[in-house]
């Protein structure tokens, strides 16, 4: 079981308290009704599914209930960092492999 640091609670808690919520930094258009088919496809259907570093959303559902973002390596399952929802994609990753 993974330990995940909740950026709101500011501590590591067991994975059981969390739920994954898919890829992060996919913003919903403020004019979604006017979006082209291609843009809507990208927004709704297309995901990166990388081997390696992924930016994803988690929810501390059995804790503070907040959604937040995490950077995780899909190969090692290691969490590189977590940060609050709404914060920009980190430019530099601490301790990331390469």
């Amino acid at each position: 079981m993974l330990l995940i640091r909740c950026p709101y609670c500011e501590e590591e808690r067991p994975e059981l308290e969390f739920r994954n919520a898919g890829e992060a930094h996919i913003a919903r258009s403020t004019n979604i009704a006017g979006e082209s088919d291609d843009d809507f496809e990208k927004f709704f259907f297309i995901r990166a599914n990388p081997k390696g570093v992924i930016y994803e959303r988690w929810r501390h559902i059995h804790g503070c209930a907040r959604f937040f973002n995490a950077v995780r390596d899909t190969v090692t399952d290691k969490f590189i960092m977590t940060y609050k929802a709404g914060e920009p994609k980190p430019a530099k990753l601490p301790g990331a492999a390469k």
Binding site: A65, R66, F67, A85, G86
Partner: peptide, 13 residues
């Protein structure tokens, strides 16, 4: 509840 919280916290904060 999760769906509502998700939109409230992340899309319509």
């Amino acid at each position: 509840m999760n769906h509502m919280e998700d939109y409230l916290q992340t899309e319509f904060p």
